[in-house]
Design a binder for these strands. Structure first.
Lengths: 198, 198
DNA sequence: CGTCGGCGTGGCACTCGGTGCCAACCTGGT
DNA sequence: ACCAGGTTGGCACCGAGTGCCACGCCGACG
């Protein structure tokens, strides 16, 4: 009860190992037969754990693929908060995305995940929900940056900026995936932003 | 077998009436107790039809609120296709949105729907899926407009533009809802676009 | 007028994702 | 040896959907 999160306790390691084994097996099945066509029962049968235990590692089936959305959102928010206040919104958001990307998974894993996302609409939907969560974290920071009065009537500007920037990010990653990871994601993002700001 | 869809047959009217009654009852329950907390069983019990029949009127629970996403998408695509080819993308998309809005529901109904959407994440997710469908319809038109070679490697520009514009639309409607429908949605949309293109 | 055929409907059984609850168990500390 | 916290698995259960089939209403046709 005294301490939480600071010291990684012993069993954390085996727990992490179990998580990773579930993840590996599940991703293999997903790519083999498709995300929607793969059932939880299949996964737990191959891993050798019970259905019930599976849900102690992953809250939902989509979480296996999407990972910890909240944690990534927090690093994104922190990265944005760390940018100088005078920086214009698009530059600040771009820098924050770059900082987040540094903490992300390997390109191969990201490619696998993105390929799955392009084929399963339920997965896409959850992914978009994640972006909404991020929006909730980023909008206040951007409103502060724009000098919006927090007490006044809701203002569309910060929301629209965050939404557009996340849209550019998604677009860049989607095109990157369609090109089998051959192109530079940052360049694709910049092209997307340039087209939007036209 | 000879004819489909052209002549509205007799029973279409009562079928339409049934649909509307389900819709009314469901929307009332949703606003009273929340979307997620309302079960299909509750709805069908109040309307007096069977569970099985409900699913012949609405494919999913979310469809009651969201309506026919595909049909709206088609009118949106047609409206965009009808714009002159020289028009710049943002203006063309704006005009297409306005044309779509003319075919939309009443402001009260839209306000109810939007309020529900702001409270249920599953509803939001399906709504975003709908936008993805729209994106699939609009992107080819916009690529043609931008002179993108359809056979070449995927290009992020048209995708980003559509995504950003839809984001602005959503933002405008969200803020409009947060202001209880008092503001002018078109003005909010223009503010959103201006902030993005800043 | 009787019957045939199409169509909506209801009911049943089933799948799948997800949750609450509880008993068994392992493991480390006293 | 015993206790406590945490893990696991099994069971029952819920809610959204789907496939299948039998019933019943209706209009058409002989």
């Amino acid at each position: 009860m005294a301490e939480t999160g600071a010291v990684p306790r012993l069993w954390d390691r085996s727990r992490q190992a179990a998580r990773e084994e579930i993840e590996r097996t599940a991703l293999r099945l997903f790519t083999e037969q498709g995300f929607d066509a793969t059932t939880i029962d299949q996964i737990v049968a191959e891993v050798g754990i019970s259905r019930r235990s599976f849900f102690r590692y992953f809250g939902t089936k989509e979480d296996i693929v999407l990972g910890d959305l909240v944690a990534v959102g927090r690093t994104l928010r922190d990265a944005l908060a760390a940018r100088p206040a005078e920086e214009d919104p698009w530059s600040a958001l771009r820098a924050a995305f770059l900082a987040m990307a540094a903490h992300g998974p390997s390109p191969e894993r990201r490619l696998t995940v993105m390929r799955l996302m392009l084929t399963s609409s339920s997965l896409r939907a959850r992914h978009l929900e994640k972006h909404l969560q991020w929006q909730g974290l980023l909008v206040p920071l951007l409103e502060q940056r724009l000098g919006v009065d927090a007490g006044a009537a809701p203002d569309p500007r910060a929301r629209a900026l965050v939404s557009a920037a996340l849209g550019c990010l998604d677009t860049a990653l989607e095109v990157w995936t369609l090109r089998d990871g051959e192109a530079d994601p940052v360049e694709l993002y910049d092209q997307a932003v340039a087209a939007v700001r036209g």
